[in-house]
């Protein structure tokens, strides 16, 4: 027996066809919901950084421009510890570094406003343009402490997204964004994981200690091996190596 004939421009479809389709639509809804649960549940590599979007706080410290803008503060952000220097990387809104905002302020004590970005033991401030107020004349900055030469394996990320602005802020899905951010001046950071999966962060600089942003754009979000000199600048580890010597890991 052939199925009842269906014509779409009629007011109603044949009852047998309607009953058949109702069963399939219910099955499709259930299957769709199941797939939604499975796919949403199985994707998990988002990262646990925090971005205090819309929350603007005031910060005091000394500006350091190299290799990337940072603020030297007297205590780690978010703790009560005293008499400890800590460096907080600075970035501008959007996919931009804070180079233009702090130009010429090397060594000056300032007050600025911005939103905090944190992940693990790393801190960053998205500076609100126009809020940097110079409080005192320039003072001599401290030199970093050389820790020796190391060969490190990890992934280059743009620190702003990885520390909390984007979820996820690394690997292939975020690669193009990381290229844009680092191209715009956000500090490139090598994320190295130890055997327990704990992350150690190295701000990337050239062998002369200068910024390398434009030279690492084709090496972002993929496994790399970098050999260079590690220098401790307060709480920040800086890895000095020429980008041409970075080695891709297959």
């Amino acid at each position: 027996m052939s199925a009842p004939f269906y014509i779409g421009y009629n007011a109603k479809m044949p009852p047998a066809t309607a009953a058949f389709l109702r069963r399939w639509v219910v099955a499709l809804f259930v299957a769709g919901a199941g797939v939604a649960v499975a796919l949403a549940g199985l994707q998990h590599r988002y990262g646990d950084g925090q971005f205090e979007f819309g929350i603007v706080k005031s910060f005091d410290g000394i500006i350091s421009e190299s290799p990337y803008p940072n603020l030297i503060v007297r205590r780690p952000i978010g703790t009560d510890a005293k008499d400890v220097r800590s460096r907080v990387l600075l970035v501008a809104p959007g996919k931009h570094g804070a180079q233009e905002l702090v130009r010429g302020l090397e060594g000056r004590a300032v007050t600025l406003q911005g939103s905090l970005i944190t992940r693990d033991n790393q801190s960053m401030i998205e500076v609100r343009p126009g809020t940097i107020a110079v409080q005192a004349a320039a003072v001599a900055g401290d030199d970093g402490v050389p820790l020796g030469n190391f060969t490190l394996r990890g992934e280059i990320v743009d620190s702003k997204c990885y520390f909390g602005v984007m979820k996820p802020g690394n690997l292939k899905p975020h690669k193009a964004c990381a290229i844009r951010c680092i191209s715009g001046g956000c500090p490139p950071v090598l994320v190295v994981r130890d055997a327990d999966g704990m992350a150690v962060y190295f701000v990337l600089a050239g062998s002369d200690g200068g910024a390398v942003s434009s030279d690492v754009l084709d090496k972002i979000a993929e496994p790399l091996e970098i050999t260079g000199e590690v220098e401790r600048q307060d709480n920040v580890l800086v890895l000095k190596a020429e980008p041409g010597t970075y080695r891709r890991l297959e």
Binding site: F29, G32, A40, G41, Y46, D48
Partner: peptide
């Protein structure tokens, strides 16, 4: 209804299982 149900289930599941995720992601 099917599309909205799918989106709602996906978003609610994501928020419940991955509290760290951002709304836009």
């Amino acid at each position: 209804g099917g599309v909205l149900t799918f989106l709602a289930v996906f978003v609610v599941t994501g928020l419940v299982l991955h509290s760290e995720i951002t709304a836009e992601a």
